Simulated assay, not measured.
Amino acid sequence: MRIQHSVLAVIVALSGCASTAPAPATAPTAQSAEINPAGDIPDDTVFVTYRAPDGAYEVKVPEGWARTDQSTGASFTDKLNSVRIETKASTAAPTESSIRAEVPGAQDAVVDTVRRSGGTAVRIVYRADSAPDPVTGKVVRDEVERYEFYSTGTEAILTLSGPVGADNVDPWRTVSESFAWKR
Protein backbone atom coordinates (compact mmCIF):
# COMPACT_ATOMS: atom_id res chain seq x y z
CA MET A 1 0.00 0.00 0.00
CA ARG A 2 2.90 2.30 0.82
CA ILE A 3 4.34 1.87 -2.69
CA GLN A 4 1.02 2.81 -4.29
CA HIS A 5 0.87 6.01 -2.20
CA SER A 6 4.45 6.83 -3.18
CA VAL A 7 3.70 6.32 -6.89
CA LEU A 8 0.63 8.49 -6.55
CA ALA A 9 2.67 11.20 -4.80
CA VAL A 10 5.27 11.16 -7.61
CA ILE A 11 2.55 11.45 -10.26
CA VAL A 12 0.92 14.40 -8.46
CA ALA A 13 4.31 16.06 -8.01
CA LEU A 14 5.22 15.61 -11.68
CA SER A 15 1.89 16.95 -12.86
CA GLY A 16 2.48 20.07 -10.75
CA CYS A 17 5.74 20.62 -12.64
CA ALA A 18 4.00 20.61 -16.00
CA SER A 19 4.64 23.63 -18.12
CA THR A 20 2.14 26.45 -17.83
CA ALA A 21 3.43 28.13 -20.98
CA PRO A 22 0.71 29.26 -23.31
CA ALA A 23 -0.29 26.95 -26.12
CA PRO A 24 1.47 27.64 -29.42
CA ALA A 25 -0.35 30.06 -31.68
CA THR A 26 -2.41 28.48 -34.39
CA ALA A 27 -2.39 29.58 -37.97
CA PRO A 28 -5.29 31.81 -38.96
CA THR A 29 -8.19 29.90 -40.40
CA ALA A 30 -10.26 30.79 -43.44
CA GLN A 31 -13.56 32.45 -42.74
CA SER A 32 -16.28 29.96 -42.14
CA ALA A 33 -18.72 29.36 -44.92
CA GLU A 34 -21.75 31.58 -45.15
CA ILE A 35 -24.76 30.01 -43.46
CA ASN A 36 -27.87 30.63 -45.51
CA PRO A 37 -31.46 30.26 -44.39
CA ALA A 38 -33.55 27.57 -46.04
CA GLY A 39 -34.23 28.48 -49.65
CA ASP A 40 -31.48 31.09 -49.92
CA ILE A 41 -29.93 30.87 -53.40
CA PRO A 42 -26.13 31.24 -53.04
CA ASP A 43 -24.56 34.41 -54.45
CA ASP A 44 -22.12 32.35 -56.54
CA THR A 45 -24.90 30.59 -58.48
CA VAL A 46 -24.17 30.25 -62.20
CA PHE A 47 -27.00 31.03 -64.63
CA VAL A 48 -27.55 29.40 -68.02
CA THR A 49 -29.85 30.42 -70.84
CA TYR A 50 -33.06 28.50 -71.45
CA ARG A 51 -34.65 29.11 -74.85
CA ALA A 52 -38.27 28.20 -75.55
CA PRO A 53 -38.61 25.28 -77.99
CA ASP A 54 -40.42 27.57 -80.46
CA GLY A 55 -37.70 30.21 -80.08
CA ALA A 56 -40.15 32.86 -78.84
CA TYR A 57 -38.15 33.88 -75.77
CA GLU A 58 -35.17 33.10 -73.60
CA VAL A 59 -34.44 33.51 -69.92
CA LYS A 60 -31.51 32.70 -67.64
CA VAL A 61 -32.08 30.09 -64.94
CA PRO A 62 -29.79 28.67 -62.25
CA GLU A 63 -27.50 25.98 -63.62
CA GLY A 64 -28.21 22.44 -62.48
CA TRP A 65 -31.82 22.95 -61.43
CA ALA A 66 -34.24 20.20 -62.42
CA ARG A 67 -36.26 21.12 -65.51
CA THR A 68 -39.79 19.97 -66.16
CA ASP A 69 -41.14 20.67 -69.64
CA GLN A 70 -44.79 21.67 -69.85
CA SER A 71 -47.05 22.25 -72.83
CA THR A 72 -47.00 26.01 -72.13
CA GLY A 73 -43.37 26.38 -71.02
CA ALA A 74 -41.02 24.93 -68.42
CA SER A 75 -40.30 24.98 -64.71
CA PHE A 76 -36.96 24.73 -62.94
CA THR A 77 -36.67 23.66 -59.30
CA ASP A 78 -34.02 23.13 -56.68
CA LYS A 79 -34.90 22.29 -53.10
CA LEU A 80 -37.38 24.96 -52.04
CA ASN A 81 -37.11 27.37 -55.00
CA SER A 82 -38.66 27.43 -58.43
CA VAL A 83 -38.64 29.39 -61.67
CA ARG A 84 -41.57 28.84 -64.03
CA ILE A 85 -41.99 30.38 -67.47
CA GLU A 86 -45.10 29.88 -69.55
CA THR A 87 -46.85 31.59 -72.44
CA LYS A 88 -50.44 32.06 -73.46
CA ALA A 89 -52.27 33.83 -76.26
CA SER A 90 -53.65 37.19 -75.23
CA THR A 91 -55.44 39.93 -77.12
CA ALA A 92 -54.10 42.70 -74.89
CA ALA A 93 -51.17 43.47 -72.65
CA PRO A 94 -51.75 42.79 -68.94
CA THR A 95 -52.49 45.74 -66.68
CA GLU A 96 -52.27 46.15 -62.93
CA SER A 97 -56.06 45.92 -62.65
CA SER A 98 -56.35 42.86 -64.94
CA ILE A 99 -53.70 41.09 -62.83
CA ARG A 100 -55.53 41.92 -59.59
CA ALA A 101 -58.67 40.34 -61.06
CA GLU A 102 -56.90 37.28 -62.52
CA VAL A 103 -54.39 36.14 -59.88
CA PRO A 104 -55.78 34.51 -56.72
CA GLY A 105 -54.79 36.52 -53.64
CA ALA A 106 -53.69 39.49 -55.74
CA GLN A 107 -56.14 41.85 -54.07
CA ASP A 108 -53.78 42.14 -51.08
CA ALA A 109 -50.55 41.89 -53.09
CA VAL A 110 -48.11 44.50 -54.34
CA VAL A 111 -48.84 45.04 -58.03
CA ASP A 112 -46.79 47.46 -60.11
CA THR A 113 -45.44 48.03 -63.59
CA VAL A 114 -41.68 47.57 -63.98
CA ARG A 115 -39.16 47.95 -66.77
CA ARG A 116 -36.87 45.01 -67.46
CA SER A 117 -34.43 44.30 -70.29
CA GLY A 118 -37.13 42.28 -72.06
CA GLY A 119 -39.63 45.14 -71.90
CA THR A 120 -42.31 46.43 -69.60
CA ALA A 121 -43.95 43.90 -67.30
CA VAL A 122 -46.65 43.91 -64.68
CA ARG A 123 -45.13 42.52 -61.48
CA ILE A 124 -47.05 41.06 -58.61
CA VAL A 125 -45.46 40.14 -55.28
CA TYR A 126 -47.45 37.99 -52.88
CA ARG A 127 -47.23 35.01 -50.53
CA ALA A 128 -48.64 31.55 -51.10
CA ASP A 129 -48.28 28.03 -49.75
CA SER A 130 -45.95 25.74 -51.66
CA ALA A 131 -47.13 22.42 -53.00
CA PRO A 132 -46.76 19.70 -50.36
CA ASP A 133 -43.41 17.92 -50.35
CA PRO A 134 -44.04 14.53 -52.05
CA VAL A 135 -42.17 12.66 -49.29
CA THR A 136 -42.92 14.56 -46.08
CA GLY A 137 -46.12 16.36 -47.03
CA LYS A 138 -44.62 19.54 -45.52
CA VAL A 139 -45.88 22.86 -46.92
CA VAL A 140 -43.66 25.97 -46.92
CA ARG A 141 -44.88 29.57 -47.06
CA ASP A 142 -43.40 31.10 -50.23
CA GLU A 143 -42.66 34.62 -51.39
CA VAL A 144 -43.73 34.83 -55.03
CA GLU A 145 -42.69 37.33 -57.71
CA ARG A 146 -44.65 37.03 -60.92
CA TYR A 147 -43.86 39.02 -64.06
CA GLU A 148 -46.21 39.25 -67.03
CA PHE A 149 -44.58 40.38 -70.30
CA TYR A 150 -46.52 40.97 -73.53
CA SER A 151 -45.60 40.99 -77.21
CA THR A 152 -47.78 40.75 -80.32
CA GLY A 153 -50.60 38.57 -79.01
CA THR A 154 -48.51 36.52 -76.58
CA GLU A 155 -48.14 36.88 -72.85
CA ALA A 156 -45.13 35.38 -71.07
CA ILE A 157 -45.60 34.71 -67.37
CA LEU A 158 -42.41 34.37 -65.34
CA THR A 159 -43.03 33.15 -61.78
CA LEU A 160 -40.25 33.02 -59.18
CA SER A 161 -40.85 31.50 -55.75
CA GLY A 162 -38.89 30.64 -52.63
CA PRO A 163 -39.45 30.45 -48.88
CA VAL A 164 -40.43 33.61 -47.03
CA GLY A 165 -37.27 35.03 -45.43
CA ALA A 166 -34.84 33.67 -48.03
CA ASP A 167 -32.59 36.33 -49.55
CA ASN A 168 -33.25 35.79 -53.24
CA VAL A 169 -33.44 39.42 -54.35
CA ASP A 170 -30.29 39.28 -56.51
CA PRO A 171 -30.96 35.90 -58.18
CA TRP A 172 -34.57 36.85 -58.93
CA ARG A 173 -33.38 40.15 -60.40
CA THR A 174 -30.90 38.25 -62.60
CA VAL A 175 -33.68 35.98 -63.89
CA SER A 176 -36.27 38.72 -64.45
CA GLU A 177 -33.71 41.01 -66.15
CA SER A 178 -32.63 38.20 -68.48
CA PHE A 179 -36.06 37.56 -70.02
CA ALA A 180 -36.06 38.54 -73.70
CA TRP A 181 -38.46 38.07 -76.60
CA LYS A 182 -36.67 36.48 -79.59
CA ARG A 183 -39.15 36.80 -82.43
Rank of each mutant, 00 (worst) to 15 (best):
G118F: 06
A109T: 05
V110L: 08
Q107S: 15
V140R: 01
V144K: 01
R123M: 10
D108Y: 06
V111T: 14
V139K: 10
D142T: 06
A121K: 00
A121F: 04
E143M: 05
D133P: 05
S130G: 12
V135I: 09
Q107A: 05
V122E: 05
T120I: 14
G137E: 04
A106R: 04
V122S: 09
A128N: 03
P134W: 00
V135L: 13
Y126E: 08
P134C: 01
A106Y: 02
V114F: 00
P134G: 02
T120F: 03
K138L: 11
A128Q: 15
V125G: 12
S130R: 05
S117C: 11
G119S: 12
R116V: 11
V114M: 05
A121M: 12
D142E: 13
V125E: 14
Y126H: 07
D108E: 08
S117G: 12
V114R: 13
R123V: 11
A128M: 01
I124V: 15
A106C: 08
T113N: 10
T113H: 06
V110F: 09
G119W: 00
R127G: 10
V139F: 07
A106N: 10
V140H: 01
A106F: 00
P132W: 06
V110K: 15
D129W: 11
Q107V: 13
G137L: 04
V139C: 09
R127K: 04
P132V: 06
E143G: 06
P134S: 07
Q107W: 03
T113S: 08
R116S: 01
A121Q: 08
D133T: 04
T120Q: 07
V140I: 15
V135C: 00
T113F: 07
A121I: 08
D142M: 14
D112M: 01
V140S: 12
A106D: 13
D112E: 14
D108P: 00
A128S: 10
